[in-house]
Simulated scan of single mutants.
Amino acid sequence: IASGPGLLLLDEPLSALDAKVRVYLRHEIKTLQQKLGVTTIMVTHDQEEALSMADRIVVMNEGKVEQIGSPNEVYCKPQTLFVADFIGEMTQFTGTTSGRSSVKIGNTELNTVAHQFGDGHEVSLTIRPEDIIPLGAKPEVKKDASNSTKNIFSTKLEEMEFLGSFWRCKLKADEFSEALVTADFSVNAVRRLSLEPNQNLWIEVPSESILAFNLQVT
Rank of each mutant, 00 (worst) to 15 (best):
I41W: 05
E208F: 12
C169G: 01
I210C: 06
D18E: 08
L36H: 06
E204A: 04
S124N: 10
Y24D: 04
V83Q: 08
I210D: 00
L201G: 01
K142D: 08
F153R: 03
S146G: 01
L36P: 02
Q67N: 14
K20P: 06
K104T: 06
S101G: 13
V21Y: 06
D174S: 08
A212T: 14
T218C: 14
I105A: 01
F117V: 15
G164I: 13
D119W: 14
D174T: 11
S154C: 15
N188I: 11
V181H: 07
E49A: 06
N61I: 14
I152V: 15
S186Y: 01
F117K: 04
I203G: 00
P206Y: 14
Q116G: 15
Q47F: 04
I132R: 02
L25M: 07
I203C: 02
K77M: 08
I133K: 12
E178L: 09
S148H: 04
S102D: 02
D18V: 07
A54P: 08
N200S: 13
A19Q: 11
N111Q: 08
R100A: 03
T44C: 10
I105L: 10
I29M: 04
A173M: 07
Q199V: 14
V181L: 15
R26T: 11
A16D: 02
Q67M: 13
G37D: 05
D55Y: 13
D85W: 05
L125D: 00
I203E: 01
Y75W: 06
G106C: 14
K156T: 11
Q199F: 05
L81E: 03
D46H: 15
R22W: 04
L211W: 10
P78H: 01
L25V: 13
F166S: 03
E204V: 13
A189G: 03
G88M: 14
V58W: 06
L211H: 10
W202Q: 00
L8F: 11
C169H: 00
R168D: 05
Y24C: 00
E130F: 11
H45K: 11
V123W: 01
I57R: 07
N198M: 07
H27V: 12
S207L: 08
T91V: 09
A189F: 04
T149W: 00
S98R: 00
V181A: 10
L36D: 04
A173R: 04
G95V: 12
S146W: 14
I41T: 10
Q67H: 09
S102K: 14
I1V: 12
L215K: 15
A145S: 13
S98H: 03
P134G: 02
I41S: 04
L193G: 00
H115I: 14
E196W: 02
A19K: 12
G164Q: 03
E73H: 10
G63Q: 05
D131C: 06
L81R: 09
N151K: 04
N72P: 01
I210G: 03
H27F: 12
K150C: 02
H27W: 12
N107V: 10
A189D: 12
K30P: 03
G6E: 09
F166G: 01
Q34H: 09
D18I: 10
L180P: 00
L211R: 08
G88Q: 08
V205K: 04
G95T: 12
S15W: 08
E109G: 01
R22C: 02
E12Y: 09
L8R: 11
Q79R: 10
F166D: 02
V217I: 12
F162N: 03
N200L: 12
M160R: 10
H45W: 12
A137N: 06
